[in-house]
Simulated scan of single mutants.
Amino acid sequence: MFASVVQPSIVSLFSSTGSAPLQLFSQHVDPAPVLRSDSLIHLLNDTTNLPPPPEPGVLVQASFTSRSSEKDDNEKADSDTQRVGRTLCQTVLHIQSPTLRTTYIRCPPHRSSSSPSKTPVTLGLTLPWMHMQVCRLGEREWAFEVGIADRAGRKGVIRCSTFQKEATVVMHHDPPLLHVPLRFPEASARPFTAWSSISIDLASLIQQFHLISSSQRAEYESFAHTQDEGHENDVPNERIAREHSGMSAPLPSGGLGKVTYVKVYANCRLRRIWLSDNKRGALPWEFELYASP
């Protein structure tokens, strides 16, 4: 999509306040009939939750309730324990589903089966930093992933999720998958907003494919050696053995070549996704978060 154009220092892929927020994305909602009310992708106002989703969709509660205007200090003191964050006075994208992996948005869009070309479309962006403004939906799990290729063309997937406990490389995934845990700040009694800004250094994470897989390999070999010595009680870790059954898969390394795709799964509210050439560059005013009064 962008490989043949001159790329500026900031490229915005998604803005919920734009005229066509999902123009660069395809949408996929879990098709199971029993989940028709729970799986949805819907644009709404973060403060009012309006407009409501089409029937039979029912919104789940987000991880906050809006602060109403306090009439006096006493009322404020009584209400603070119940209100844990301000909402945004803006339109945002609401993505929810009990089946996280089957409800998502993706850029570039999936090519339709009727398309004459079989060559997959990739983003082709070379900017190394990815940023996202997001709010979790209660205690529901959430994930997003980024497809990358190094300068030699070796591909990989970086997945960040709230349900992952430790960083691991899934070798039998095609292409290899680096799965890293995602932690949000602990809930505070007086946060300005329940929204978070996430920034990830894609170029740095490419190096973790080899570092983490080497650690996993050493752990697997240690278990295998223990078993060879006849220690029947020391059973090799099944996950490690499974991940290393395909150690011949080429791992990305070196510098970032390009970003191939971005995918955001349920469950979250999303305001913006952009890529940049550094972490702390000056941002246009419209990139900032504005809470409702």
Rank of each mutant, 00 (worst) to 15 (best):
K118W: 14
D234N: 08
G57P: 11
S248F: 07
T99Q: 08
I273W: 02
I158H: 01
E229L: 13
S113M: 05
V5F: 11
L24E: 10
L177P: 03
R271N: 10
T103N: 08
L22Q: 13
Q23K: 14
D150C: 05
L256N: 05
H210L: 11
S292R: 04
A62E: 09
S197E: 05
E70I: 08
S9G: 03
M132H: 02
R272E: 03
C107W: 00
R67Q: 13
D201K: 00
A167T: 14
E243Y: 15
F184Q: 00
L24M: 13
V157Y: 00
P185W: 01
Y104R: 05
R83T: 14
P98R: 10
S253W: 01
S79C: 12
S39W: 10
G230M: 07
E238N: 11
Q96P: 14
P236V: 08
L182W: 09
S199C: 04
P108A: 01
Q23E: 15
T260V: 00
L137D: 02
S215Y: 06
V29A: 13
P98I: 05
T168L: 06
H110P: 00
V29F: 06
R280L: 01
F144P: 10
V146T: 12
T193P: 05
D38K: 15
E243I: 13
K279C: 02
T103R: 03
R269E: 03
T260P: 01
L13P: 12
I212P: 13
S97Y: 08
G124Y: 08
L127G: 04
R239N: 13
I41N: 12
V29E: 09
T48Y: 10
V262F: 05
S196F: 03
S204H: 01
V60N: 15
I105T: 08
V11S: 08
S63E: 15
P56W: 04
P175S: 03
K71L: 10
K258D: 04
R183I: 01
L43E: 12
V262K: 03
L125Y: 02
L93T: 15
H225L: 06
E288S: 07
E238I: 11
F184I: 01
F192M: 11
I206M: 02
S68K: 13
L177E: 05
P33C: 03
P8L: 08
A282M: 11
T87Q: 12
L22F: 14
I240C: 11
T47L: 15
G57E: 07
M171P: 00
L205F: 06
G255N: 09
D46S: 13
C89I: 09
V5L: 05
A282Q: 10
W142N: 10
P176Y: 05
R67W: 14
L35H: 14
V262P: 01
Q90K: 15
V235N: 05
S161K: 03
L40V: 13
A187N: 02
C268H: 04
P185D: 05
S19Q: 15
L44K: 14
D46I: 09
N267A: 03
V259T: 05
K258W: 01
S161F: 06
R86G: 14
S215R: 13
S4V: 02
L182C: 01
A143N: 07
S214V: 03
T126W: 00
K263Q: 13
S204K: 03
T122D: 12
H231I: 06
F192Y: 06
R271A: 09
V34G: 07
R183E: 04
A282I: 10
F163M: 05
E141R: 09
P56V: 04
